[in-house]
Amino acid sequence: MIASLLPSISPGTLLAGGVTATAASLWMLLPRGRSGRAERSSRWLGGLLGLAALAAFIALGRRLGSVGEDTIFLVVALVAVVSGAATVVSRSPVYAAIWFAMALAGVSGVLLVLGGQFLGVATIVVYAGAILVMFLFVLMLAQPAGLAPYDRVSNEPLLAAVAGAVLLGILSLSIGRLAADPASCCAVPATKAALLATDPGAGPNGPGTVDLLAADHVARLGGELFGRHLLAVEVAGVLLLVALVGSIAIVSRGAADDEATDSRRATP
């Protein structure tokens, strides 16, 4: 019955409904400081909504491909940009960090759309999973109670904003120009073209290009990384080691200086 009904609903509507239902379900399921009946009914409702959302996504599954790539890109790009802006303008550094996590999610979506499957995942894992958590730890170690005065004012906000806007304008102009006149930027150099002419394999973008959207994308990326860029990988490994050693060295040297500060803070 329902199944027969579904096809008449457009995939977009379905997706929107599913997403909304998911959100509502989660909101309802989360503890919200209530008790008694209201609490129980809210849980039930949330559970039902969750089931509905699940159904909507399952139904959507086969038709999601028809949702335009552009639409998905638009959504994730919006998420990235809005969250980025929120990161910049958040008064509280903790909120800024969380908004940054949101922006990371958006960026990772854009990466996925652009064909960077591995990078999309890696961004989430490395940034959100490691770096951002480190930021939050530091914030919790160092953040004073309440909102610090320096979080409530900015340094030359007008100049900075204008500079950023001008930069964006220049970049947009440049990007627009290269879309309008690809020969000015996107011509393959003659030497490389000659080299590529002998390449038997051909990607979707012509001879010499690789198919980034191939099924074994990650395997190919790994091959590229540990093949052509092996030396760079080794250097990056050394860089990580150096950063590790350096951080520890700085911490241990600063320990002596910190003792006075620590004792001052320990005895308020």
Binding site: N155, E156, L159, A160, A163, L167, I170, L173, S174
Partner: peptide, 26 residues
């Protein structure tokens, strides 16, 4: 003594250079 002002000055300088380059390219 406020590093961000230095950075701002650097950015403005870089922007001026980029503007000049773009203006020529255009």
């Amino acid at each position: 003594g406020i590093v961000q002002r230095y950075a701002l000055a650097g950015v403005i300088g870089a922007l001026l250079i980029v503007l000049a380059v773009v203006a020529r390219a255009m």
